[in-house]
Nucleic acid binder design. Structure first.
Lengths: 130, 130
DNA sequence: TAAATCTATATGTCATTTACATATAAATGA
DNA sequence: TCATTTATATGTAAATGACATATAGATTTA
């Protein structure tokens, strides 16, 4: 309990840890899908942007993002094309598909439900206090 | 992506899965602590009750609950005593400690923060839609 | 111009977590 | 007596997560 594994950012206390902790791999999916609704992007950009999104999950590992992108493509939620390097090395540019947009809206609905359940649990705990 | 591992309850679709998915082991802690604020209890009772709490995490594995109880005790958040079997086999009865109550309130605070972050992400996604 | 750094996309791998199976044992009911 | 229920665990294979490493073109800097 209160294991220190993964608490990469130094100075991170239990509270910050509790707020951020979550299933890393799976919660990459909705964040990537959202970022791609803003327009096509390549992995490196996504990795850069994903950590700054408001989200109760940890900043994901860059390796995990690349792997997630491949899996999302295999599932048909995103598509990719190579963009020849006008500047810098070649990029694999991803675009969201209609299936991907549907997938994101499913995620959003599920998050609304999560909020409700979390609030119910919070209320239970607070009731005890008073 | 959308792996089926752990989707033990048959008929569980992606939505239900998204709502429930979370770090199993770590989210056992706040739920056990809350249940113990209701009064002393033994593992089997806790396992029975924990699945019925409103919570955006999966019903935890019974083996994981027993292991979590041991770890919580080692951390000083709960204490246990053996209760000689008046009825049925002997029970290890757990009680929450003051440190455990503090721990739970830390969890609750972190959940409030999680809700805020989740709502912020939801708002971002909805802004895109309209 | 050589070396270092930055951008970019990966793969490798080991420890932890998770899911599920199994072990143990007392009590209880058929 | 034999199966079932209550109760507390341990064992373990597979998935996940964290971090290290590989590769390579472009750009900066010494």
């Amino acid at each position: 309990m209160a294991s220190n594994r993964g608490k990469t950012e130094s100075g991170m206390g239990d509270y910050e840890w509790f707020v951020r902790e979550g299933p890393r791999k799976r919660f990459i999916e909705p964040r990537v899908l959202y970022l791609l609704t803003l327009g096509p992007a390549h992995g490196y950009r996504i990795i850069d942007a994903i950590g700054n999104l408001p989200f109760p999950g940890p900043k994901p590992d860059s390796a995990a993002v690349y792997r997630a992108l491949r899996e999302l493509e295999q599932s048909g939620f995103i598509r990719s094309r190579w963009e020849g390097g006008e500047k810098g090395p070649a990029k694999r540019v991803y675009t969201i598909t209609p299936a991907g947009r549907k997938r994101l809206s499913l995620w959003v609905d599920s998050f609304k439900e999560r909020v409700k359940l979390l609030e119910a649990f919070i209320r239970l705990c607070e009731k005890r206090k008073t």
